[in-house]
Simulated assay, not measured.
Amino acid sequence: MSKLRIAVQKSGRLNDDSMRILKNIGISIENGKDQLKASARNFPLEVFYLRNGDIPQYLRDGVVDVAIIGENVLIEKGNDIDFVERLGFSKCKVSIAVPKESKANTLKDLDGKRIATSYPETVKKYLKEYNIDAQLHTISGSVEIAPNIGLADGICDIVSSGSTLFKNGLKEIEVLFKSEAVLAVSPLISEERRAILEKIQFRIQSVLKGQNSKYILLNAPNDKLENILKLLPGMRSPTVLPLAEEGWSSVHTVISKNAFWEIIDELKANGAEGILVCPIEKMVL
């Protein structure tokens, strides 16, 4: 049987998160230190540990079938490659920043100026879209230092927490786009391997739905049950069970973690008691 070949970043945070999601979907990887390729013990999968910037070309050539890669890298080096799933981790922005003392506050202020970046194709396309003529300096590594050494008037780089910009005396003036890890697919993937990919996608979707949801249990007075149920959209509808105490019911359902506090406040206002909220490991629909 064919094995699906998946590329992940060789080292760094994206590697850690990639291996974590494979573990969360039940795939055990036999990888030793410094291995460039490893096989799964319990799934038809081979993992290739590659440099992040090389992955788009490996996908394009069909050397690997799929990859967990930052959307920002895909936009820069693989905008002809499709992805099938957003993975919800390694979130960041690709932003333009300038020194705090700079008079530049908008993208237009960089017209005729110098911008240092590790994403020249992305920046070139963005500047062209807004009719900005700037000189680009392509740098690998610590882009943030470029304005301090007089190489550039501004930079374009990924921004996560913003702490690196702050430490280097920079301020963000433009966000090109937001990025996160995605599951990208080679245009040359075979039908047999695509069938394996679909199984992985199903598992990933179950994990992501679980991470974005909370399981909630509460006690509700029957005379206010109708109002409480209106606040609780479940997968189909909430489960309602009678309690030993007359006039009360136990309600079980799933809610979005993003709406958690708003719903809790409304439930309490409508007489709900004993509210218990639990994380969900996986949710299969």
Score class of each variant (00 low, 15 high):
Asn52Val: 09
Tyr58Asp: 01
Lys77Thr: 02
Asn79Trp: 12
Pro56Ile: 07
Arg51Leu: 15
Val63Arg: 09
Lys108Glu: 14
Ala97Asn: 10
Ser102Gly: 07
Gly78Ala: 06
Ile75Tyr: 05
Glu101Met: 13
Asp54Lys: 10
Ile69His: 04
Ile68His: 01
Val63Glu: 12
Ile55Arg: 07
Glu85Phe: 03
Val94Lys: 00
Val73Ala: 09
Ala67Asp: 09
Lys93Ile: 02
Pro99Val: 06
Val84Thr: 09
Pro56Gln: 04
Tyr58Arg: 09
Glu101Leu: 13
Lys77Gln: 09
Val98Gln: 05
Ser102Asn: 08
Leu74Gln: 01
Asn72Ser: 12
Gly78Tyr: 02
Leu107Val: 12
Pro99Gln: 12
Val47Gly: 00
Ile68Tyr: 04
Asn52Ile: 08
Glu76Pro: 01
Pro56Glu: 04
Lys103Arg: 11
Glu85Cys: 07
Lys91Trp: 12
Cys92Asp: 13
Ser90Glu: 10
Lys77Val: 02
Phe89Arg: 00
Gly78Val: 02
Ala104Asp: 06
Ser90Asn: 10
Ile81Arg: 09
Lys108Asn: 12
Lys108Leu: 09
Lys108Ser: 12
Gly53Gln: 13
Glu71Met: 06
Ile96Asp: 02
Lys108Cys: 02
Glu76Gln: 11
Val64His: 00
Leu107Trp: 07
Leu107Gly: 15
Gly62Ala: 08
Asp65Ala: 11
Ala97Arg: 03
Lys108Val: 05
Pro99His: 06
Asp82His: 06
Val66Arg: 00
Ala67Ile: 10
Leu107Pro: 11
Lys93Gly: 03
Gln57Met: 14
Asn72Met: 07
Glu101Arg: 10
Leu50His: 07
Leu87Tyr: 07
Lys100Asp: 13
Val63Asn: 11
Val73Asp: 01
Asp82Val: 11
Leu107Ala: 11
Ala97Ser: 13
